[in-house]
């Protein structure tokens, strides 16, 4: 069971993540979009979306710090565990709170605004459920575990982090994870499930973050001959020629 949960599942999910993205990019460039719903509603979006996304950027940075940088490295530069802990909480709690608040606003908006709700697919709903649970568990782990020490103190930098790195060293150490508290276990396993879902949901838009915009010339010229792939036509032409339909409610 330990091997299944903490070795097999992560590797399968990561494989699906990588192969899935390559496949989706090749097969479905047209579907690779944020699927923005700003046209329908923008009062709530204007608050919720930046809160969620900027919060999420903070959360991702925090995970990079906590999971990828070994404790030995922070010790080496003279950062004491308690100082590290303070930094993690001071940065992590506002980021987590912003993410959660943003997500709450966005989910409420999605349900309460008619047009936004009808543009929500089953795929979206499943993704939001998993994403929301992962975020909630993560915040629970931080607040309950690290701040108030519910159920004893747990140093994830001795358990979760080395296990996570061990996956990428290709020498997985599942026992580290088997001993972790239930909250961390659930957070980790659901996060991997989310990775597996990633390429098949709208989350793919994360990988089109337009950083190239900063260095690119403003006006793009392109020749008629230059075609992104081998379809017949000047460019790979568009889908989306469905007729408008009325779904009365």
């Amino acid at each position: 069971m330990t091997t299944l949960l903490w070795v097999i599942v992560p590797y399968v999910c990561l494989a699906v993540f990588v192969v899935g993205h390559v496949w989706r990019y090749r097969y479905d460039k047209f579907g690779w979009t944020t699927r923005s719903s700003q046209l329908y509603e923008d009062r709530l979006l204007r608050i919720g979306s930046p809160l969620f996304h900027f919060g999420m950027l903070g959360v991702v940075l925090g995970h990079v710090m906590g999971l990828l940088i070994p404790q030995s490295a922070t010790d080496a530069i003279g950062l004491s565990p308690s100082a590290y802990h303070t930094i993690a909480l001071v940065g992590g709690i506002p980021a987590g709170a912003a993410t959660l608040a943003g997500l709450a606003i966005l989910v409420y908006r999605r349900r309460a605004t008619g047009p936004v709700f009808s543009a929500t697919t089953v795929n979206d709903k499943a993704m939001y459920a998993v994403l929301g649970t992962v975020i909630a568990l993560g915040i629970w782990n931080t607040v309950a575990g690290s701040l108030f020490h519910f159920g004893g103190e747990y140093h994830y930098r001795d358990g979760v982090s080395p296990w996570f790195r061990s996956i990428f060293y290709l020498q997985p150490e599942p026992d580290l994870m088997a001993d972790a508290p239930l909250g961390f276990q659930l957070h980790a396993i659901l996060a991997f499930v989310l990775f597996a879902m990633w390429p098949f949901t709208r989350l793919v838009h994360v990988f089109s973050a337009p950083v190239g915009y900063i260095t690119r010339p403003y006006i793009v010229y392109r020749s008629r001959d230059e075609r992104p792939d081998a379809a017949t036509g000047t460019r790979a032409p568009q889908r989306g020629w469905e007729r408008p339909e009325l779904h009365k409610k």
């Binding site: 479905d28 579907g31 795929n123 379809a231 036509g233 790979a236 032409p237 568009q238 889908r239 989306g240």
Partner: peptide, 16 residues
């Protein structure tokens, strides 16, 4: 179109 609206391989405008 497995990913819903507009997914799948492109088709030339004229043929489409």
């Amino acid at each position: 179109a497995v990913f819903g609206e507009g997914s799948g391989r492109p088709v030339p405008v004229a043929v489409e």
